[in-house]
């Protein structure tokens, strides 16, 4: 019995010691997990922050920081901390690709943590405050995004006023030049919704796609807010046009990088794969509609079967995608 207790004590020591070793070995991973954000360097002056809701693009240069999208509201403090690790320069612009909460939820806090591009040459603080978003960074977006986020007088807006775009534009194409490169914002009508834009960094050769490209799931076609399957396909084709594959020297480096709304950093081929998936499933559903099948029958026939293990892992997304195609085609 004595020997058994001795073995027990020895075993306990081994277990405790092994646990200590495990904790020590795992500490870096634990610290990384606590930060919860993944900052991926895309180009020397351009980064992608993943894990804050929708992906955020960060362009850094002598003019300051330009963000594309702001993530969800609850992640803003982490995003600000991540930005401080990248640069001491302030955020000057936030450009939005869409109006969903996981892309614009952080607008207010990140803009407030930034600094307006205007200087107070008039010496009138009140006027300067009124003209410059209270001294915060500008929020630039297509007017369709402003319309989704705000509300007419007397109605409740979807988001607080502090997070609304301060520079809304009506054109299909808006351009600015920051940090020595041209930045184009290209409106994509009736795709994921009626409020989508691509943001293209011409010098860095990077396009931010928003939720038109979501590597983690089938696309959300928000019919209630103006989305359509054909608009989604048109936008994906446009995105392919905007990108350049690494040819003729396919082994040498990367082509145009595409930052999706969610998921990993992509190139043209991932957009082609995604477009092909959307077109194939659309064609299958269209064929089934032509054969007189009901929505329930179409869902039961699994028209998205080849892609379900990749894009249909989240509960309900496959069904929602098929339904959105069906309703979009029936319109």
């Amino acid at each position: 019995m004595q020997r058994d207790f001795g073995m027990c004590r020895f075993s306990a020591r081994v277990i405790v010691a092994a646990a200590l070793v495990t904790i020590i070995l795992q500490t870096p991973q634990i610290l990384r997990a606590a930060e919860d954000l993944d900052v991926v360097r895309v180009r020397p002056n351009l980064y992608m922050i993943a894990g804050a809701g929708g992906n955020i693009a960060v362009q850094i240069g002598s003019d300051g920081v330009v963000l594309v999208d702001a993530g969800k509201e609850g992640a803003s403090d982490q995003v600000i901390a991540a930005l401080k690790k990248l640069t001491p320069l302030p955020v000057r612009y936030i450009v939005n690709t869409g109006a969903d909460a996981d892309h614009v939820g952080g607008n207010a806090k990140l803009a407030a943590a930034g600094q307006t591009i205007f200087t107070n040459v008039l010496g009138n603080p009140d006027m300067a405050k009124a003209m410059t978003n209270g001294g915060a960074a500008s929020i630039l977006a297509h007017v369709s995004i402003l319309q989704r986020m705000s509300a007419s007088t007397g109605k409740t807006a979807a988001f607080p006023q502090e997070s609304w775009p301060t520079e809304a534009f009506y054109q299909k194409r808006k351009s600015i030049r920051m940090n020595e490169e041209g930045i184009e914002i290209l409106y994509q009508p009736n795709a994921h919704s009626a409020a989508d834009s691509f943001v293209m960094f011409r010098g860095s050769d990077v396009v931010v796609a928003g939720d038109i490209l979501d590597k983690t799931r089938f696309p959300v076609i928000d019919l209630a807010n103006g989305g359509s399957i054909q608009g989604e396909i048109d936008a994906l084709n446009k995105l392919i046009e905007l990108t350049i594959a690494p040819i003729p020297f396919i082994y040498k480096g990367a082509g145009t990088y595409v930052i999706p709304g969610h998921g990993r950093l992509c190139e043209q081929m991932e957009v082609v794969d995604y477009r092909d998936m959307v077109v194939t499933v659309r064609d299958v559903v269209a064929d089934m509609i032509e054969r007189g099948m009901t929505l329930d029958q179409i869902k039961a026939a699994s028209p998205a079967k080849p892609y379900e293990t990749q894009y249909g892992k989240l509960p309900g997304v496959t069904s929602a995608f098929i339904e959105s195609i069906y309703k979009s085609l029936k319109k």
Binding site: D38, M48, A50, Y251, A254, R264, L265, E267, E270
Partner: peptide, 10 residues
């Protein structure tokens, strides 16, 4: 690399 890093043929 992290799961968010780009993929290539290599």
């Amino acid at each position: 690399p992290s799961e968010n890093a780009p993929h290539d043929q290599t």
